[in-house]
């Protein structure tokens, strides 16, 4: 089992979510995040362009059985890209996951995900 954490741009959330559902991954957690990566984005403030710091991002957390890890990565990469090689589209981290418990039933691990 793996825990996948993805940082993506907020405007791609719906596209990524739809791609995940299409890949059979329906249980996700999304939250707001702020961060600074390689991108140097410009924002418009009262008609003036200013350099943005700590841009708003969306953080996805998805617990996955092993066979779903690659399809999940593929779906996110495909849907979250604004263009080939464009900076600021985000990152995906895959972490080992030790144990999962579903609160309502007490089911664990493979069944619990």
């Amino acid at each position: 089992m793996k825990l996948l954490i993805a940082i993506i741009q907020p405007d791609k959330l719906d596209e990524v979510h739809e791609a995940l559902v299409a890949a059979g991954i329906t249980r996700i957690t999304a939250s707001r995040a702020s961060g600074q990566g390689r991108a140097q984005e410009m924002e418009l403030y009262r008609g003036t362009e200013v350099a943005a710091s700590r841009m708003p991002k969306v953080r996805l957390e998805i617990a996955l059985n092993d066979e779903f890890v690659q399809p999940c990565i593929d779906a996110i990469v495909r849907a979250a890209r604004h263009g080939e090689g464009e900076r600021g589209d985000g990152k995906i981290f895959v972490l080992p996951l030790e144990r999962v418990v579903r609160i309502s039933t007490g089911e664990e691990d493979r069944q619990g995900i």
Binding site: D11, E18, R32, E43, R54, M55, P56
Partner: peptide
Amino acid sequence: HREELAGMDHALHGEHGYGLMNVN
């Protein structure tokens, strides 16, 4: 379609309404 998914605030106005929810 793409801009509808992204939302009007980002796609049309280059802004977001609830900046206060994010540390910036």
